[in-house]
Design a protein around this nucleic acid. Structure first.
Lengths: 222, 222
DNA sequence: CGGCATCCATTTTGATACTG
DNA sequence: CAGTATCAAAATGGATGCCG
């Protein structure tokens, strides 16, 4: 009856006691890009099953990582949203993503699902603060009918779903191409040159884009 | 038969496919402080059972994260050791530890195990690069009959089990005290003032120590 | 010690049907 | 849509025995 735990007085183990079970960190990943409805969470986590999803959400609430609330009127739809503690899991999730970009991203399998929301985090994981020093710009990304944007400033990046207010540049690509970009298999410049991605807007911002979110693929010359 | 996976083309999910199962990241944590024997791994992971530990180690080998080798002669004991890919999991493990120090470290429960090796990572998670800028020193820590050290230089820290070559300062404390320091529940200065920890060595290095590894506990003044 | 094999009691999970 | 209820299929924990 009592939840299974590692029973170790260790910060890593305690964290895993709270978010280390199957699906939990992926739910956090979903919520990192904004509040979501029960159904949307389920749709982005194929295979989880409503029962387990409900259980995990209850647990995250009990742990103070997420909470159930309602979107402001007139929508009023019930959604789940991260708390402050939950948002602070972002560095850990990004660290895992960074490792995955480097070591776990073979080609995409037919079976593998892909949702543009994941690309948002993929881009954040790819972000190179050094390249962003002393630079500021806002980018908008369009993938099929999904849009998100990234605001670069002060050597940091902030990404969100939805369109940007005044984007300096816009990048447009199909899902497959974007998956490659976000997961480090494809270089921005190659995608644009091949016409798989279309870019427009401020020329300096577009040039900078390539170094802000470097791909992982071997530094093939040229 | 086929391993269970999330089947998502997402860097976070792929990483969790490889290291997200129960015990796996704790095995990585153990190996981050150096190669270990099968038995020592088991001893530091109470409850895992030899079968599951063997299965996890095989999986980590297959994934290229760890490998089985032998200590150089004359010891020759078989040990498990991280590969390059495995060592690169350190940022992710430390990020989880950092979150845990902040949000998951209630008091230690009677039931909770504690091993000094965990403190090594706890200290690394606590490390504040900003405070270390332009500073260099080597510290040795003694907990019961266990010794480890941290070398601070170039705004970074490197910790290892075992004594330091030429420590600038030495900190000595019992296990309970050290657990509190590593997990952020106890401030260095308080532990020293109370006599729960004994420090000696270079005075400047000792003073700096307090800011290099700040505690998490509320900034209660004085 | 290093590890695999086996048996068994519990937990977790996955899939689906069902209710407000 | 949100979430509960239910049941079968894994995964895990613990004990124990074995063999190099």
């Amino acid at each position: 009856m009592t939840r299974r735990g590692y029973r170790q007085y260790c910060a890593t183990a305690r964290t895993l006691d709270l978010v280390g079970e199957r699906w939990t960190l992926l739910i956090v990943r979903e919520l990192l890009t904004g509040p979501k409805r029960f159904k949307d969470l389920g749709d982005n986590l194929p295979g989880i099953g409503t029962g387990l999803l409900a259980e995990r959400l209850k647990h995250l609430e009990a742990a103070g990582i997420a909470h159930r609330t309602r979107l402001p009127p007139p929508a009023g739809t019930p959604v789940y949203e991260l708390t402050g503690a939950g948002r602070e899991l972002e560095p850990a999730v990004l660290a895992l993503a960074r490792w995955g970009r480097r070591w776990a991203m073979g080609d995409r399998d037919e079976q593998d699902a892909f949702h543009p929301g994941w690309a948002v985090l993929g881009m954040q994981a790819a972000f190179d603060p050094a390249a962003a020093a002393g630079f500021a710009a806002t980018y908008e990304f369009r993938v099929g009918d999904t849009t998100f944007h990234a605001r670069v400033a002060g050597g940091a990046v902030e990404s969100r779903m939805g369109p940007a207010q005044h984007p300096d540049a816009v990048l447009e690509a199909d899902e497959e191409t974007f998956a490659g970009l976000a997961n480090g298999r494809l270089r921005m410049r190659d995608a644009v040159r091949d016409g798989r991605a279309r870019a427009h807007g401020d020329r300096a911002a577009l040039t900078k884009l390539r170094s802000l979110f470097p791909a992982v693929v071997t530094e093939s010359r040229q």
